[in-house]
Each structure stands twice: as C-alpha cells, then as structure tokens.
Amino acid sequence: MSVLRAHKLSKYFYEPEKFQVLKDVDLTVERGQFMALVGKSGCGKSTLMYILSTMDTQYQGELEIAGTRLTDQDQNFLAAFRNKHIGFVFQFHYLLPEFTVLQNVMLPALKLGNKGKEEVEANAMEKLNMLGMKEHATKLSSKLSGGQQQRVAIARALINNPDIIMGDEPTGNLDSYNSDLVFEIFQELTHTYQQTIIAVTHDASFAKRSDRVVEMSDGKIINGF
C-alpha cells in the first residue's frame, strides 16, 4: 500500500536565472519502506524532499500523502498536516535549546493536542527509552552531544506516530559510531514498527543499507523507480 504518491512534479528556480530543478518527477513510496534519496549536489534531491515534506508549495504536479491530496492546500492546513503525519530529522538536529529533552519531544504532541499532558509525557518517555535517551530527559537539550541530540530529534519525529519520517542528511553531521547508531534505529523502526522513512543522503554506506535507493540526476530520477 502506497503512503506517498507524487505525480509529474516540476519546479523552477528563478534566481539568478530561470532553471528547472525538477522535471516531471513521479514517485511512489510504500508503507514501511526505508528509502534513501541520493544523487550529486544540485541534482534536486533536497528540493524534491522539501516538496514532499509539504513545506515547499511552489511547484507544479500532484502530491498525495496518506490518501490526502496536498497540492493547492493552504499553509495552515499543511502545518496541521505536517504535525500529524510527518516527522522530521535534519542534519543539524535543531532542538529548541532552552527546553529540556523531554519538552522538545513533547512539543509536537502538545501542538496536536488530542492527548492529555500526562499521556504525552508517558509517550515521550517511552520514545526516549526506545532510543536509549531516557536518563537525559530532564537535561537541557543544548547540553547534549551531537549524536545524543540526533537521537532526541528522532524521538521528537516519532512522537505523533507519523505516516512518514523525512530526513535531510540525518547522519551528515555525525561520526561513524553515531551514524551507525542512527542507521540501526531507522532500520529497526521500519522493520519492527512498519515506519516509512525517506532520507536524503550523501552517505554511500547509509544508502547501501536502506531498502530502496532512488538516485537522481539533473532533476530526474534515474534509478530506483
């Protein structure tokens, strides 16, 4: 069953001059798939991911996630949709530095607001436990190391049980030990919990160990349809 469907996605950059970054890209992602999006710098893989993430709305074509058509929806709807259906893991972990680890993980669930605070807190602790970060829960997030912060970011991405986790170079800023750790977490998530993951990566070993590698070049998918 497909969780994400993109049809004929095209995008232009107008600065410094008109340039077509994406050329009629079609992509379907199955539920529980661990997909790596690879390609050279400037091939359009990050651009594609930001369109898939619903944050970039300046494109032509059709996008559907979890059965909801997302093309031409307004920003407020898309924000609410991201909150419920998409989790993010970025290269720079982007935790809110003034908040504790636990607060960072709880934030998307509090925003969703369909569970009480105690329940959200219990869920957050469970996710932190799963990622081996339970004992750091009450620390300020800025006090953690890079690898620890990335694990907290993954816990945060998981808190609302999203349909898709999207990663932009999730291991790009980590040493090999932590990269392996993050990779193992992703693998466990897909295989044990049927979590769909789309990750843009430069890391060849990371890509090799994923379920499916989609390679892009010059705004087109050239491998891994």
């Binding site: 993430s53 944050m55 920003q75 407020n76 924000a79 609410a80 949709f81 991201r82 909150n83 419920k84 993010f88 970025f90 720079f92 982007y94 935790l95 809110l96 530095p97 934030l107 998307p108 925003k111 969703l112 945060r156």
Partner: peptide
C-alpha cells in the same frame, strides 16, 4: 530563526 523554522516544520502555523 532556526527555532521558528523547526517549529514550522513540526506543524506550527504562521499564526502560532
């Protein structure tokens, strides 16, 4: 700005 970007990615709308 980074915090704002991440809040928006997590599903906070402009008005939030």
């Amino acid at each position: 700005l980074k915090d704002i970007a991440i809040l928006k990615a997590m599903g906070f709308a402009g008005k939030d």
